[in-house]
Nucleic acid binder design. Structure first.
Lengths: 219, 219
DNA sequence: AACGGTATGGCACACAGTGCCATATAGCCA
DNA sequence: TGGCTATATGGCACTGTGTGCCATACCGTT
């Protein structure tokens, strides 16, 4: 998940990139070992030998450094969606972009990346302020994805609510599936794939099946 | 939306309740007038003539006092769901509980309650930290609602994922509908009802219609 | 080699939030 | 009525986050 922006050009740029990565890595290590709240910014900057003031020039706050990797993931996801073939149906493009990026981040990279990914997710989920911020990021990602779906379908941005509904539906299913997967402590990606497919089937049943009352009720 | 917990018994209890209400009201007035970030806790407690230390005995922080009314609303919603007739289908119970509580809070009460409700929603949506916290509250509400749905359907709590999917689907549709309603600046509840129904129809199309690729894709 | 833009460091400060202890007061019992 | 006890409150000191301001060091360029 490193070097997302590609190779830096100047010496200054490279140093900045290294400092930023060092801060994220040191912060994550501390967060996972001591917990988010128990970790102070002073400890993070001490580990990287950077001043406190400099930290705030790289990140707006503690939240941002904690969610840095997650935000990179979201950026990759959005990129993958943008580069999906135009003839794919919206939901198909969404799902394939998701699995594509997920596989690239978790399976690939150095071993243990999947483990760290899962541990970070657990920590975020267990830290109220991080959970809140990550949900806010999700909403923002949904907005951008909906805009992209609208673009690729040739719809005028705010006129059709279907892109927004599709994207939020996708994230809803994914969240329920991820919760179930995480809760089960399962680590194998194949288990997650199965859960996701079952969840989509269940969602179909929930919205259209007899379980809701033979039809979508009119209030 | 006041006196949610019913009439207080002792003199002490009543005074506490009055202090709490005064703090919420003063805070909301300041937040709406000056903005959330620009309002300090010192200003809030000065308006109610209470010490800073006391404030933190009523609320865990600034966020909590800002979202106090929203949390009361959520509690009412959950209550309404719990008292819905058992023969209603889950989604029907959910939608009727929602409209019921919404009508009670916005239409009823003193005039202008709808206006204030809308202004607070806008402020929360425009204040990053409040938006984040309110989304976290939503997730928590979803959990409790899913548990209630599971209970009324006689399902073993963690075994079936349909309650979770149904509840998150409901909130997804409502969020898209509310966004659209708020954005349009519409104030009439009838407009919202129409948007909600249309959104449900669109969601049906999105999940099952040809727009997604003639079927739910298999990854 | 000198210059200009930029990254950094070191304050000082405002504000949120917490722990501790002293004081005041409601509720209760003799 | 008078006193006792539990509880609510206020005051204070302290930690930690986040920001504005200015001096300094360094990269990149001419």
């Amino acid at each position: 998940m490193r070097d997302t922006a590609g190779t830096a050009t100047g010496l200054r740029e490279r140093k900045k990139e290294r400092t930023r990565e060092a801060l994220v890595d040191a912060a994550q290590e501390l967060f996972l070992r001591k917990g988010y709240d128990a970790t102070t910014i002073d400890e993070i900057v001490a580990a990287v030998e950077v001043s406190r003031r400099t930290f705030f020039r790289y990140f707006a706050g503690k939240e941002e450094v904690a969610l840095a990797r997650a935000m990179e993931f979201e950026a990759l996801f959005l990129d993958a969606l943008t580069t999906r073939p135009a003839d794919e149906a919206p939901l198909t493009a969404l799902r394939r972009a998701g699995t594509e990026v997920f596989a690239r981040v978790v399976d690939e990279e150095h071993d243990g990346a999947g483990q760290e990914f899962l541990r970070m997710r657990r920590m975020i989920e267990d830290t109220p302020v991080l959970l809140a911020a990550s949900l806010r990021n999700m909403i923002e990602l949904e907005r951008r994805m909906a805009a992209e779906i609208a673009r690729r379908e040739g719809l005028t941005p705010g006129a059709d609510r279907r892109p927004a509904l599709l994207v939020t539906l996708y994230h809803s299913v994914m969240r329920v599936a991820m919760d179930e997967w995480t809760e089960g402590g399962a680590l194998e990606a194949t288990g997650l794939v199965r859960i996701i497919e079952d969840a989509w089937d269940d969602m179909g049943v929930v919205l259209t099946g007899r379980w809701t009352a033979d039809e979508i009720p009119r209030a």
